[in-house]
């Protein structure tokens, strides 16, 4: 039964996530909130593993979520659910590629879909930031504003932001480099 629900949840994700792998993230947060199959924190870890292993991110995340929820059958079913709508839609479009590409209605729809897609990704980013850089739970208990900020994490985030965006020698590097470096910093400074 859970396999059927997994398939359905990922079918919806594959059908409505427009704009590639990262666009599936808001849907995964939505699944996490509604079903409780996995936590938001676990999801952030899955993003990291999916970025650092071979394969498209969207597929990796689906496999990981499926495995966490229902073992190996879950991994297979979630992945199949994610790709089923793609296969159906592409097989339909492939017959009329030119007409699809130049259809003004499709183009107009995407004018609205693009900001939607990054709005959703930005909201997912906010959820990860809340877990990774702040301690809202500690703050709620102690009421001290200083407890709200995870100083070590904020410092690391600032360094990473500068390195990935402004340092010429570093910004072209593959994400896996930054992920491994952050893991090391986490262990050394006992995050």
């Amino acid at each position: 039964m859970i396999l059927l629900r997994l398939f359905w949840e990922f079918f919806k994700t594959g059908l409505f996530a427009v704009g590639g792998g990262m666009a599936t993230l808001p849907f995964l947060y939505d699944i996490s909130t509604r079903t409780g199959w996995f936590t938001h924190a676990m999801l952030a870890d899955m993003v990291a593993v999916s970025e650092s292993t071979p394969g498209p991110i969207g597929v990796n995340m689906a496999t990981y979520v499926g495995f966490t929820t229902a073992g190996i059958p879950g991994a297979v079913i979630a992945t199949l659910g994610l790709i089923t709508p793609s296969v159906i839609i592409i097989l339909l479009i492939a017959r009329a590629l030119k007409a699809f590409k130049s259809n003004p209605l499709v183009e107009a729809g995407f004018y609205g879909l693009r900001p939607c897609s990054i709005g959703l990704i930005a909201a997912a980013c906010y959820l990860v930031i809340k877990i990774a850089l702040f301690n809202p739970k500690v703050y709620a208990e102690t009421g001290r504003l200083a407890d709200l900020f995870n100083v070590k994490a904020l410092a690391l985030a600032a360094v990473l932001l500068v390195c990935t965006r402004y340092v010429k020698k570093l910004k072209g590097l593959h994400p896996i480099f930054f992920i491994l470096a952050s893991a090391l910093v986490g262990v050394v400074f006992a995050f």
Partner: peptide, 11 residues
């Protein structure tokens, strides 16, 4: 915990 910080920046 360190990796999660990196994920924020990547997203």
């Amino acid at each position: 915990a360190g990796i999660r910080v990196c994920v924020c920046v990547l997203i």
